[in-house]
């Protein structure tokens, strides 16, 4: 299988690549339109600041390509947030795949949320073999609201979308590549879609 991890200079690509390797897959890193288009599966990671990451995407011309992809796409963390309409972080316009806004956690809780929290109300084949309330590793200051695309929720400050799905697009706020065996199961499920 031909798996491509989008490498646009704002992702923890190494960790995602290694996690796929541990499952017996050999993904390649690329920012080439042709390579990404030809992939069976596309993983869109992201860490750091949203407006900076969006700039990097635009530089490589991937902002127009990504929403048109037809194969299964998995956005991770900031990758998921960039697939949404817009984020309050740096007032950044997203790729508009998921019709939802990304907001900042209130100061009633510590920001960033950092550590392991549960995912519940699981509604997708992405979560096959996982129990409700499985623990995932999360690091983020902004969250996607619960919406029609929500396929998993997490509670921190409030209930928010820890995973989204629309057609061939999946997004997870947590880091499956860093979430022990349960996270690996989610990656495996995605790669088997």
């Amino acid at each position: 299988m031909n798996i491509v991890i989008i490498d646009y200079g704002a992702g923890n690509t190494k960790s995602v690549q290694f996690a796929c390797n541990r499952l017996g897959y050999n993904p390649i890193l690329s920012n080439s339109e042709d390579v990404i288009k030809a992939a069976d599966k596309v993983i869109f990671p992201g860490v750091g600041q949203a407006s900076h990451a969006m700039e990097m995407l635009k530089k490589s011309g991937l902002d127009t390509l990504i929403p048109t992809l037809k194969q299964p796409v998995l956005g991770i963390c900031l990758g998921m947030q960039l697939l949404c309409n817009a984020t309050e972080e740096g007032d950044t316009l997203g790729l508009g795949v998921f019709d939802v806004k990304v907001k900042r956690f209130s100061n009633k809780v510590k920001v960033p949320q950092m550590g392991w929290n549960t995912i519940f109300d699981l509604e997708s084949d992405l979560f096959e073999g996982l129990k409700n309330d499985a623990y995932m590793y999360l690091v983020h200051s902004y969250y996607a609201e619960v919406c029609e695309h929500t396929i998993a929720q997490t509670n921190y400050d409030l209930n928010y979308s820890s995973a989204l799905k629309k057609e061939n697009f999946y997004g997870v706020q947590f880091h499956p590549e860093k979430s022990s065996t349960e996270g690996a199961q989610i990656l495996r499920n995605f790669l088997k879609l």
Partner: peptide, 11 residues
């Protein structure tokens, strides 16, 4: 419910 779904303490 807030108590049920809390960010865990890390070791």
């Amino acid at each position: 419910m807030a108590d049920q779904y809390m960010l865990t303490k890390r070791i």
